[in-house]
Each structure stands twice: as structure tokens, then as C-alpha cells.
Amino acid sequence: MKILIIEDETALVQDIIKYLTSEQYLCEWASDYQTAMEKVSTHEYDCILLDLMLPGGDGLSILNQLKKQNKQDGVIILSAKNSIEDKVKGLKLGADDYLAKPFHQAELAARIESLIRRKQFDSNNIITQNELSIDIHSKTVTVNEHPVSLTKKEYDLLLFFIGNKNRVLSKGALAEHLSGDFADMFDNHDFVYAHVKNLKRKLKESAYGDYIKTIYGTGYKWEQ
């Protein structure tokens, strides 16, 4: 899987690359408008991470270029502006997702995974994880052909874990994933425990392995 990161903040790009490379992603990097334009028009990527404020030009015109060339690359806008107008404009121009800075690496990884999954039509939209299979379309989960009934939040958590296998996910990142933007309005994210506990219990009842580990003091990890 090839990912292009269009972003001028070197340190942030390095972090993203570091977080993503251990998955089967191959990351490329363009730090300015010119390089980005060249890379975008000559290569195909599974996913492009696009910062809107670039030296040398507006990130939105890169989106325009992609659309003109009829390219199918998935695009996630990364923006420090966090403005509704940019979001709407970007999504209208054909971006697939929008993530406001600052974000958790785990959230970015989950978004990339979900985007790539949506773009792959051959997989029948079924994710298989050992005896577990998830039908993205109908949002149903089965273990060894037996259905597992999950709430919407438990289902979201499951996907988030699978998108961040072998990574420690902090409570904050989980809460932000479940509640969205306003999770930081609260200091208490204990509700995350309850959802994770229920998810673990339901998977266990379906005789699925106990992959979700609690990491003392920091959060959880899907170990495999």
C-alpha cells in the first residue's frame, strides 16, 4: 500500500511515517506544493494525506488537479485550520475524509485503513481476523459463523482496534474516536472502560481469543 504524505511539518511527517511503516504501508513524502503536484500527477497512491496550508500553493488545488486527471487516489485532508468552510470545500472537491490537527496517530491509522478498505472493491467488504469476520456493509460481526451482537460503539471500537493492531491505544484516543471532537470537553473518559469491557466479554462469550490487553496506566492494545 502506498501512501503519500503532503505536509511541510517535518517532525510530524516523521512521526506519521514511523507509526505507519510497521503496518504494510509504504510512505512517501512531499513537503511543498511543487513536489506534491509532480508526485500526484506521475504516481498512483492508495491514500494521500493532504495538508491544506503548503509552502508554494494551496492544498485545495492539488485536490482539483486529482479530480481533473480523474484519479482514484483516496484523500484525507489534514488541516490545522479546523474550519468548517475548508472541510466542506475539501469534501466537495472529492476528498474522502477530513482530520483536524492535532490528532491521535491511532485515529489517523484507523481512518487510512477504513479509506483503503472502502476503495478496495474486490474484498467484498469483509475483514477477517482469525475466526472473526466483519462485514463492513451490513455492520455485522461473526465468530466462526456465529453472529456476535455488538452495540454501535462496541463495533466502532472493534474496528479501531483492528486498524491499530499491536499498538497501545490511550484512553484519550479511544474516547476521541468514540465521541469525536468534543471528547476533550471532559476530563473523565471512564466510559471507555465500560465499552471495552463489554466488547471483551462478548468476544469471549463467542469463544474468540482474548486479544485485547489492558496496558497498565495507559490504555489498551490488540495483541496478535
Binding site: 510530524l12 507509526y19 490537527k101 492535532p102
Partner: peptide, 14 residues
């Protein structure tokens, strides 16, 4: 940007 960096560094540190 610095806040975003702090957040991503913390994620990596974890």
C-alpha cells in the same frame, strides 16, 4: 502545530 507534534510524539512514546 507544536501541539499536534506533542500529541503525535506522545502516541509514539506509548
Amino acid at each position: 502545530t507544536p501541539i499536534a507534534l506533542l500529541k503525535s510524539k506522545l502516541d509514539l512514546l506509548l
